[in-house]
Nucleic acid binder design. Structure first.
Lengths: 328, 328
DNA sequence: CAGTATATGTCAACCGGTTGTCATCTGACC
DNA sequence: GGTCAGATGACAACCGGTTGACATATACTG
């Protein structure tokens, strides 16, 4: 391995000063076309690439966004990560990915790590810590789907409306007894509003309902089947299920199949998110679409604005949409 | 916002020299317990976190691994990313994630970006560039599922065996005419060996077969249905399908359903990868399991060894396993 | 010809750490 | 009393860039 060329090597090769090379690199000051070309030629000859670590140190800006998710293995967060990274990249940002596994210790460690690495901001899509921990963070943070404090903007979609659309759709399709499988309601997630809407509508319409909460670790897929089987065995007269994710809905399809319930004849199922497999499985899942692309884009924009110390709105709620497919 | 504390502030607060703080931070030289405590106390009081960018610059080591995948939105790469990040983190590495979208230009740009950012190594799970581009990279690279050159180690699983297991399983279940849906065979991916195995076994056993290749962009899910419908309409006598991924298998289930073919009675389906939804959909997918966790772990280990200039084996092929479920 | 825009160079400081060299001081041990 | 390990500090150089201040030289513009 040859030594990695530095700006000095480029300067020497091009026969100019380091300052001049830096000027070319950063487009500042007066530079003649001839010199510019010489410098670029030297950079190419040496296969020179400026050391961003050195630049970051000086600029106190790394152009890195930290993204903390429960796990990218879950399709929802996989898609979120994909959109977010793509948009971030187009804005000159890189993304450091962190899978907290919804483990508070890991999440805290990741936050510290991101800080030490001078990320410009953090998008938090995992929320296992106390609100206080986030508040004292003293660096641009955007929260995904959770209200933390008025000083920390959040991006979400209209969960109440989503819950409402889901339940109204089930009822419109003739359901007479419905259940909602959601994450733990002990955590004050904005997603809980789906459940509020669920109850409100059911009560409004005088429809019997039940609720099943998952463990705190919402993304442990194995748990879904057990919970759902238990639910359906105890309430065989259920004819409508509202699930907090499409993955849960896929699990529900499986469990119903095992119990000999036909979808949508005997029981109707509606998921949430509209991740890409939702329309690929059979039957295709009726679901509430969250505008993930826009949410990701907005998250990056908010980080950018926070970095620039611009004022940003705390609440950023995007609309959801009912997507009718084969399970209802 | 208050100024971010530096090592100098810590030194002042603790009443010691910067050298001493650095010694405490790096565990070198003689340090009394009393001083150590004083320094840690000062760090805590100031909420000090060492600037890793500065350290990276000096050490010429960032402890960052770049991971380039086609897209983390695809469950296979989502799971890969999740495993890889988790293992990397446990070894003190962070992961910069890059979604190439299988776009050669983006991939090249990402490689340059990672280099400028002084990543310690790159795990390449996207392969759109010419072999030459990777060869001249002059930094630790581990290739995922592709042979590039004898100097670049790759991690893969036994694709030939996987293909063999899949086809033999289909035949054992009584299939008489089979098809394989795979990625473009023009690219010299190791996954192509699945197809070689497919053909070899089919010819050995004298079974008629056909092949469908996707576009170069293998992960465009929308394309699958079209290709499969076309295939099944043209060959209604097909009774066995071997798909190069579980996602493709899910698409196949859907298409077969639309065409009124029962699974597994009329047609048997076998997928590949064993991603987590494979066992969640209905019917559950028979598939070839790739040991993703171990493959991810191995990739990180190889990067570590390359960083340390240790000799590493070029070929790293892990075993696959047939997982029998409901589609065959 | 003065004044100004253009083009480049030298030099030093800085970003926030790390590390090697050298010096100094204390206390224990022989 | 001399030797030596332990503990700490001062200082400078370094990592690879960026930037501001200042100097100098050329070329044009009025």
């Amino acid at each position: 391995m040859i030594e990695i060329p530095t700006i000095k090597d480029v300067a020497k090769k091009a026969g100019v000063s380091v300052t001049t090379v830096s000027r070319v690199l950063n487009n500042r000051g007066y530079i003649s076309e001839a010199t510019r070309r010489k410098v670029y030629q030297a950079m190419e000859d040496l296969d020179y690439h400026p050391n961003e670590v050195a630049r970051s140190l000086f600029r106190k800006k790394s152009n890195i966004i930290g993204l903390i998710v429960p796990t990218v293995a879950h399709p929802f967060f996989g898609e979120l990560t994909s959109y977010l990274e793509t948009y971030a990249y187009s804005r000159g940002y890189k993304v450091l990915i962190c899978n907290s596994q919804l483990n508070a210790l890991k999440e805290q460690e990741y936050i510290w790590m991101l800080r030490r690495n001078q990320v410009d901001g953090i998008v938090m899509a995992s929320h296992t810590l106390e609100v206080e921990e986030y508040k004292k963070l003293n660096l641009p943070v955007v929260s995904f789907d959770r209200f933390i404090s008025s000083r920390i903007p959040y991006v979400t979609s209209d969960n109440y409306q989503g819950g409402r659309l889901a339940v109204e759709h089930l009822l419109q399709r003739g359901c007479t007894k419905i259940a909602h499988l959601c994450g733990s309601l002990d955590l004050d997630m904005l997603a809980n509003q789906r459940h509020r809407a669920f109850m409100n509508v059911a009560e409004e319409k005088n429809i019997p309902y039940c609720t099943v909460q998952t463990d705190v670790n919402v993304f442990e897929v194995d748990e879904y089947e057990e919970l759902l089987t238990d639910l359906l065995v105890r309430h065989p007269d259920l004819d409508g299920l509202f699930l907090n994710s499409d993955i849960m809905a896929i699990a529900a399809i499986k469990v119903c199949g095992k119990l000999g319930m036909r979808i949508p004849q005997d029981i109707k199922i509606i998921g949430y998110d509209d991740v890409s497999i939702a329309s690929l499985v059979s039957p295709q899942i009726t679901t509430i679409r969250q505008p993930l692309a826009q949410m990701s884009e907005l998250s990056v924009k908010l980080i950018e604005d926070l970095v620039k110390k611009k004022a940003v709105p705390t609440e950023n709620c995007l609309p959801v949409e009912l997507i009718e497919r084969g399970t209802t």
